[in-house]
Design a protein around this nucleic acid. Structure first.
Length: 503
RNA sequence: CGGGGCGUAGCGCAGUCUGGUUAGCGCGCCUGCUUUGGGAGCAGGAAGUCGCCAGUUCGAAUCUGGCCGCCCCGACCA
């Protein structure tokens, strides 16, 4: 008996947040853990993250960075050093106050051995890294320091969603120190560029590079740059950030050095990061009502071979053909690596196995049965378009890389088309309100998008945005800088900024 | 942390208002047979301290109190 038309219920149009949860489940990416607010990342989800890590790590190294590792725990006093930083993170920190457990009178364990100074579990590592940099840097010759770490961090979020906001998450955080302001600014922009390139070239996710307004800035930063992407529900997702920290942390933590003139001066620092949120971003950019859709460059498996047979005789012949095909395809180079092609000979019904891979988003499914053996063909199904065709075996091997590349490009173009279709320059407050107001207030349908508007930093703007649940995503770095008038106050504006509802 | 909802088999639920034999159903799981090119059919089977603790009662999944957890909506956030 065939199930409903789509593998995922509800569909995107019916209930987008529920659809998201169902895709995570159907693709077996992760599940909620017994630990409040934390998720277990399952092998398929983790393999995806590993691919992201591998590519990003290569990009960081190409731009001169080295990996290191700093402690999970940070003395509480470290966090107090930078005023804005404390305020930003204090209310969401896990705090370690004891170092052992004892059996209580009721037979249950109770914390014992109070710590003299509580430790916090890092929500981010600027302070512990800065403390070390203060020791490592004495001379301008010690600069720049360009370090990245892959780590987990904890932010005690009140409301969590898998991959998008969990109490513990995996990320990388780059921390650099420079002799000059200009050099630190270059670094901040360079790493934002790395993120943008990764998002677009690997994730096939178009992004807007921009600068955050004061209200959205990282606590303690002078300036925060971000990449912003539009999800399929037209909401914005901040997918990566790069902070110019100025000398704020350097002053707070005495990161100083002697310059060429023998003067003692403070260093200029930056920090930048992306997290497992990128997995959520990838999901919401490409997936459909049948489950996950993966861009080939990041797919843990780029193709899967599905043997079809009735009896043992067929099984042997089909599997031989499949193994030979797998070997041939593994000899193909795609994105500078051998093509990742799996052969699934599990004893499972054909339809069920097919859906297994549809839901997991494998870009190409290659069905091999007696007919294919006879004709020396492969039955190829494309995940992104659903297109299916019988292709000569030799031709498939010859065009496999090109086919994956087509999928990669098609996904990017489709995402870009969605963003373009729902990005609009808006010049009046009425139109702005209409753009961000759903037709059905009870059950809001997918609506809105990115509004490009003139704006000025005036306190009267905030209540209007709050009422609509709209935020300023960023001031685009490469937007046209035509001047105009703020749609809220009528005052002069230097350029348009991006407004959207956001995750 | 405020408002609302929910905890019963691995998952999803019914039963609770109106206490009463052995707590059911669907999916999944196990075994067998038949099947197998888009989510199989039949037969048999395993699996539950009804979230936890206390109370009321001859008797509690059901009533009362407390606690814990999860989900949704707000405020906060990568």
């Amino acid at each position: 008996m065939a199930k409903s038309q789509h593998a995922i219920s509800p569909t995107r149009a019916e209930d987008y947040p529920q659809w998201f949860q169902q895709v995570v489940k159907a693709a077996d990416l992760a599940e909620v853990s017994p630990v409040r607010g934390c998720m277990v990342i399952k092998p398929w989800g983790y393999a995806l993250w590993e691919n992201m890590q591998r590519v990003l790590d290569g990009m960081f190294k190409e731009t001169g960075h080295q990996n290191a590792y700093f402690p999970l725990f940070i003395p509480m006093s470290f966090l107090e050093k930078e005023a804005a930083h404390v305020e930003g993170f204090a209310k969401e920190c896990a705090v370690v106050t004891h170092y052992r457990l004892e059996m209580g009178p009721d037979g249950r364990l109770v914390p014992a051995g109070p710590l003299e100074e509580p430790l916090i579990v890092r929500p981010t590592s600027e302070t512990i890294v800065g403390a070390m940099y203060a020791k490592w840097i004495q001379s301008y010759r010690d600069l720049p320091i360009l370090i990245n770490q892959w780590a987990n961090v904890v932010r005690w979020e009140l409301r969590t969603r898998m991959f998008l906001r969990t109490a513990e998450f995996l990320w990388q955080e780059g921390h650099t120190a420079h002799a000059t302001e200009a050099e630190a600014w270059d670094e901040t922009r360079r790493m934002l560029g790395v993120y943008a390139r990764f998002a677009e070239h690997y994730m096939a996710m178009p992004v807007i590079q921009g600068e955050k307004t004061a209200g959205e800035r990282f606590p303690g930063a002078v300036s925060t740059l971000s990449i912003e992407a539009m999800m399929q529900d037209r909401k914005a997702l901040q997918a990566g950030t790069s902070h110019f920290l100025g000398q704020n942390f350097a002053r707070a933590q005495e990161i100083k050095f002697q310059d060429q003139q023998g003067q003692e001066v403070y260093a200029w620092t930056t920090s930048w990061g992306v997290s497992t949120r990128l997995v959520g971003a990838l999901l919401m950019t490409h997936s459909d009502d049948d489950g996950l859709v993966l861009p080939p460059r990041l797919a843990p498996q780029q193709a899967v071979i599905l043997p079809i047979y009735r009896d043992d005789a067929q099984r042997t012949a089909v599997l031989d053909y499949c193994r030979a095909l797998q070997q041939q395809l593994q000899g193909v180079t795609y994105d500078q690596s051998p093509l990742r092609v799996a052969l699934d000979d599990r004893d499972m019904r054909g339809g069920e196995k097919n859906w297994f891979y549809i839901k997991r988003g494998v870009p190409l499914r290659l069905e091999i049965g007696p007919k294919e053996l006879e004709r020396q063909t492969v039955f190829v199904a494309r995940r992104d378009t659903g297109e299916k065709a019988s292709v000569a075996r030799a031709e498939l091997v010859a065009t496999a890389a090109q086919r994956l590349d087509e999928i990669q490009q098609a996904l990017f173009q489709r995402a870009l088309a969605l963003r373009t279709a729902h990005t609009r320059g808006i010049d009046s407050l009425d139109e702005f309100r209409a753009f961000f107001t759903p037709q059905n207030a009870e059950e809001p349908e997918i609506h809105g998008g990115f509004a490009l508007c003139h704006w000025c930093d005036d306190p009267s703007v905030a209540p209007v945005l709050d009422a609509l649940k709209v935020t300023i995503r960023c001031v685009p770095l490469d937007g046209d800088h035509e001047p105009g008038r703020c749609i809220f106050t009528g005052r002069p504006s230097r350029q348009r900024v991006v407004f959207a509802k956001a995750y």
